[in-house]
Simulated scan of single mutants.
Amino acid sequence: MSDPTVRTDYVCLTLVDPRGWFLMQERDEHAPVWPDTWCFPGGGIEAGETARQGALRELAEETGIVVEDVDDLGEHEVESPHGRFRYHVFVAPTELGDDDVDCQEGRQIVFVDPATVGGLAIVDSTAIALDAVRAWAVDHTPAPPPDARGFAGVVLVDRRGWILLQERDSNPRIDPDCWGLSGGHLEPGEEPLEGALRELEEETGVRLDAADVHEVGVFATDHRASYGTWDRMWVYTAAVDLADADIDCREGRQIVFVDPATVGGLRLTKGGEGIVPAFLRSDLYASMAP
């Protein structure tokens, strides 16, 4: 039970995108408390405000984003080096992305993959709220619409554990000059696995049987800049005894095996930003890499 002698001082409001990523702020070195850490957008309640009103105002002031419908995840008591206070947490689904955020406070405000949050320096109150937000996201993460475009691709893994990626050239409508998977649009009536194998062969000359591949998962992909929609991409993988010389690059600038240690320095496609790191963290990849 909350201690009634500790009043509600602070609020936060995070947004969750179709990938299940959380909107978070990286505080800069000028922050009066918790400098150089990460938190959810939020701040102190002003006189006469309810917690909900304060959360909506703080989000708008810090990001330029205005929302109306939010879910209340409750209030938490926080003990910190800066004192004891109550912290009220709100969350809402969104189809917005980083390009829609006008960062008005801190170093950056971006959507963060929750799988990577553990590697960040987190504000005490945000650390307490994370479990509630994660639990909410399980059932409330917005999904691409039923008529979303379908895409499919394959990640090949060589004997070193390097992964096959395509460097796109300046011509494609989606993600020019970025690195991503070999893959593309599903044709009408085509099953995702069928399309993934077709795209792989069309782009690289590599032909695989359905029995050779494993399903990685289905990922939401932000194609709003190209099509105005969030779409779905089915991803598969296969271990192969191939090298760059065995790949016939038929699309893009190059299609080569890439050392996973260098992936962080590549400019990835919108889909690749979520898919490639998730795959490299997976037990499936670990079982394929030496």
Results as ranks from 00 to 15, higher is better:
65 I>E: 08
190 E>Y: 08
79 E>S: 06
108 Q>M: 04
62 E>V: 00
18 P>C: 08
32 P>H: 13
70 V>L: 03
207 R>S: 13
110 V>W: 04
67 V>W: 02
271 G>W: 03
176 P>C: 08
5 T>G: 05
229 T>F: 06
216 V>I: 13
259 D>K: 10
233 M>P: 06
283 D>H: 04
45 I>E: 01
74 G>V: 06
189 G>W: 12
20 G>Q: 02
14 T>R: 05
78 V>T: 02
150 G>M: 10
218 V>W: 05
158 D>G: 09
148 A>Y: 07
114 P>N: 00
235 V>F: 15
1 M>E: 10
169 D>C: 04
250 R>V: 07
15 L>G: 11
273 E>T: 11
120 L>D: 01
58 E>Y: 02
20 G>A: 00
91 V>F: 02
16 V>R: 06
144 P>L: 09
209 D>E: 14
279 F>S: 04
103 C>V: 15
20 G>F: 02
262 T>L: 09
143 A>N: 09
176 P>E: 07
219 F>H: 12
178 C>K: 15
44 G>F: 07
219 F>P: 09
252 G>A: 08
149 R>C: 12
195 G>K: 14
150 G>V: 09
51 A>P: 00
205 G>R: 06
8 T>H: 04
28 D>L: 11
107 R>I: 02
267 R>M: 12
20 G>D: 01
238 A>H: 14
253 R>A: 15
131 D>H: 11
235 V>C: 14
132 A>G: 04
251 E>K: 14
85 F>C: 03
4 P>C: 02
120 L>T: 00
171 N>F: 09
99 D>P: 09
13 L>Q: 01
33 V>H: 12
240 V>D: 05
4 P>E: 03
56 L>R: 02
217 G>P: 08
14 T>E: 04
211 A>N: 11
214 H>W: 09
96 L>S: 10
112 V>F: 02
30 H>N: 15
176 P>I: 05
5 T>L: 11
97 G>S: 15
219 F>L: 08
65 I>W: 12
18 P>H: 06
267 R>I: 14
16 V>E: 06
268 L>A: 08
81 P>E: 09
99 D>G: 13
88 H>V: 04
257 F>R: 08
121 A>H: 11
113 D>G: 02
193 L>C: 10
68 E>A: 11
217 G>C: 06
143 A>F: 07
84 R>S: 07
23 L>E: 14
39 C>G: 10
111 F>A: 03
182 S>L: 15
62 E>G: 00
2 S>T: 03
10 Y>V: 03
208 L>N: 12
151 F>P: 02
183 G>H: 14
286 A>Y: 12
261 A>V: 13
25 Q>P: 01
226 S>L: 07
125 S>V: 01
67 V>R: 03
31 A>K: 09
257 F>W: 08
189 G>I: 10
153 G>W: 10
272 G>R: 09
50 T>Y: 00
176 P>Y: 10
177 D>Q: 15
62 E>T: 00
276 V>G: 06
276 V>Q: 05
69 D>R: 15
232 R>I: 11
57 R>D: 03
109 I>N: 02
109 I>D: 05
128 I>H: 04
102 D>N: 12
267 R>C: 13
272 G>Q: 03
189 G>Q: 06
64 G>P: 05
232 R>H: 15
56 L>W: 03
38 W>G: 00
58 E>A: 11
24 M>V: 07
33 V>Y: 10
